[in-house]
Design a protein around this nucleic acid. Structure first.
Lengths: 222, 222
DNA sequence: TGCGTTAGTTAGAAGGTGTAACAGAACCAG
DNA sequence: CTGGTTCTGTTACACCTTCTAACTAACGCA
């Protein structure tokens, strides 16, 4: 009873962690091949040679498993951003790192940025990681010349608005144009990327990478 | 047998059409409140006072119903675009019409532009309507000054690419910069709009409408 | 009036989530 | 080493889903 905080994980703990990880691996496979909506605990259990209810020892429900996968996806994206920034990537470097990350597993991207489920609210941890991503982005945006391709007549209006509504800046002391640039980076790249990943460009004939790069070049000030 | 093409719909035809329409109405309610993944033929049947299998007289499968809803969503968006253009809306007018349309039923927007289901391929009719939307957009883009906020150094590269990869222009004889503007309109507005609809801006404090408008102003050349 | 078509029913297969009760293995203490 | 506790995985089940098969009953038309 009342086990003290273990200094070292017990064999059971290790086993448990390993099974949980294996479940998640199978879950990612299913998601990659059929989307999150087709994820089935029973199917995962079958593939692992167990019966369905056994998985409920490891995840309380299907939603709990998906939530954990969402968190892992966020974590992975944040790490990708951080690693790229640590490697000295500029804004364009971050953009291309993000595109590679998304193309590597489109359904993982959609787990974060795809169709929302009306009742579902992301856990606070997710917004914390989102803030971490935004912080990395703001840092990168702070060191870009002002010649970049951004609204200029509208700039005054939006910048003034952002200057007074910056709860989301996480304490970053960037001026409003930098905030604007970060938001624009996010929305524009998501726009091209999500349409590309969803296949809306297939059959149109042009190369999505060039459209993406053109947006990146505009944002990064060439 | 082998009924000739009826000149006037029979009472049965009218009844059938009415029940189909009623099924779709309930489907839209369910989608709006719980998303397309939660759509249940059984639940619709229950609400209509019938048993589940009865609905299979009207739609061959759940997927067939959803496909029809997707088509209706496309049709509705295309009509919204056409109506706005017929009312003399410029590019900015089209943009705001699109935003109103999306905000009116976010899940309807996501039915078109949301997370794709890996195995699913949209019917050819859908791409035809998409082409119709693009045609309206290209017309609107053709009458915009060149001062608009678009990539300029990258312009040469992307424009050259688009000039040689324009299967998607539907015979529109617009020069490459117009094609580029239409694509950019689409991706940028989808970027802001889909993030807003998915709730990714909630809690950030700023007004998504102003971000949207700033992008529109940039695209429309003020 | 009578016959063919069609709508809606029940029954059931196959599969999903999730709970409850139980068997057995693993671990830990004495 | 043995006993007790804890944890894993099982079966059985309730309840939901989609969808098929077979049947009944109503409708519409001639």
């Amino acid at each position: 009873m009342a086990a003290l905080a273990r200094t070292t994980p017990s064999p059971r703990d290790r086993y448990r962690a390993q099974v949980r990880a294996e479940i998640k691996e199978h879950a990612w496979e299913q998601i990659a091949s059929a989307g999150a909506s087709a994820l089935s605990l029973n199917a995962i259990a079958r593939r692992m040679g167990m019966t369905g209810p056994a998985l409920y020892r490891y995840f309380g429900s299907r939603d709990e498993l998906i939530t954990e996968l969402v968190m892992d996806a966020y974590r992975s994206l944040a790490d990708t951003f951080r690693a790229a920034a640590a490697d000295g990537a500029d804004l364009a470097g971050l953009a291309h790192a993000m595109r590679r990350w998304a193309l590597g597993d489109p359904q993982r991207y959609f787990l974060i940025y795809g169709t929302p489920v009306p009742g579902y609210h992301a856990p606070d941890d997710a917004t914390a990681i989102a803030a971490e991503i935004m912080a990395t982005l703001l840092d990168a945006c702070a060191g870009i010349p002002e010649t970049a391709d951004l609204p200029q007549a509208a700039e005054t209006a939006l910048d003034a608005h952002l200057a007074e509504h910056r709860q989301w800046d996480g304490g970053h002391r960037a001026p409003a144009p930098v905030l604007r640039r970060a938001l624009t980076f996010w929305t524009r790249l998501h726009g091209v990327l999500s349409l590309e990943l969803a296949g809306h460009f297939t059959g149109m004939g042009f190369d999505a990478a060039q459209l993406f790069s053109a947006e990146v070049d505009g944002l990064a000030g060439r």
